[in-house]
């Protein structure tokens, strides 16, 4: 894979990068909920313009994000096709006994946009927030759950470790793919069984290496006295500043009005 890895953190110093991770997570949740509750065109438009604004402010090249959207094109296409033929309503045209309805087409288009918004907003979150900050944000947001004896710290450690190793594992998969290809593994063979067997040649060593690494990581953490308890202190404390209050206030207000009132 040449190019940027999906949702990989891009170091930067823009306003979006500087925001508190909690703000970004909450806004992300607001966007996701709004688009799940209400998918009228103006809510989609509002979300798209918010995402566009974030992309511009974060100074991430838009072309790169759009390119990553291309990977989802089949999902979009299938969604659109199924929505447009399976929704009942006023028929537009038909092929044999399959009717394409007006309601279906409009639902299909809005579903594509909703999927796109879900994808973009989570991608932007991970692209502009370092895994460490993301984890401390999650931990801080879920802190009240500690009263219910839910291991919040361990949970956030889990997430940050997982996020941290995504690029590593992708890189490793790449090397293994190449190594097996040079031993004749056929990843683009017309036969599905051959393809699956070739994939196994990559997945088995990849899994073995991941387990090994998990073991090493645990040993390294324990050797530095990590116990996973609550007596951990983060080096950089999260600060919920003026910018965050402003951003959060603005977004919540606009969304409340749009989603519930209009």
């Amino acid at each position: 894979m040449k190019g940027l890895k999906l949702g990989q953190f891009v170091r930067g110093n823009s306003i979006i990068h500087q925001l508190d991770p909690r703000t970004k997570i909450i806004v992300c949740l607001v966007v996701i909920f709004s688009i799940l509750i209400n998918y009228k065109w103006y809510v989609i438009l509002l979300n798209m313009s918010l995402i566009a604004a974030v992309i511009i402010l974060s100074r991430i090249e838009p072309a790169k994000i759009l390119r990553s959207l291309r990977k989802l094109r089949y999902l979009f296409l299938l969604t659109f096709i199924f929505q447009s033929i399976l929704t009942s309503g006023e028929p537009l045209f038909h092929v044999g006994s399959v009717y394409v309805t007006r309601e279906g087409v409009s639902l299909g288009v809005s579903t594509i946009f909703r999927l796109m918004i879900l994808y973009l907003c989570s991608t932007l979150l991970t692209m502009t927030t370092s895994p460490l900050k993301l984890a401390s944000g999650i931990e801080s947001l879920f802190a009240p759950l500690r009263r219910l004896r839910i291991p919040v710290h361990q949970f956030s450690m889990l997430i940050s470790a997982a996020l941290r190793f995504i690029p590593t594992i992708i890189e490793e998969a790449q090397i293994l793919t190449r190594a097996q290809r040079s031993r004749g593994a056929q990843f683009n063979s017309p036969s599905v069984i051959v393809r699956i067997k070739s994939m196994a040649a990559v997945l088995i060593p990849l899994l073995a290496a991941s387990l090994q690494r998990a073991d090493d990581l645990a040993a390294a953490m324990e050797s530095r006295c990590y116990t996973g308890g609550s007596n951990q202190i983060r080096i950089s404390k999260l600060r919920f500043g003026k910018k965050d209050k402003l951003a959060l206030g603005l977004v919540s207000l606009v969304f409340l009005v749009f989603v519930f009132c209009i």
Partner: peptide
């Protein structure tokens, strides 16, 4: 062309 990668022992499966 046979290619032996770095740390090839990691590709045994």
């Amino acid at each position: 062309v046979g290619l032996v990668f770095q740390y090839p022992e990691q590709q045994l499966f």
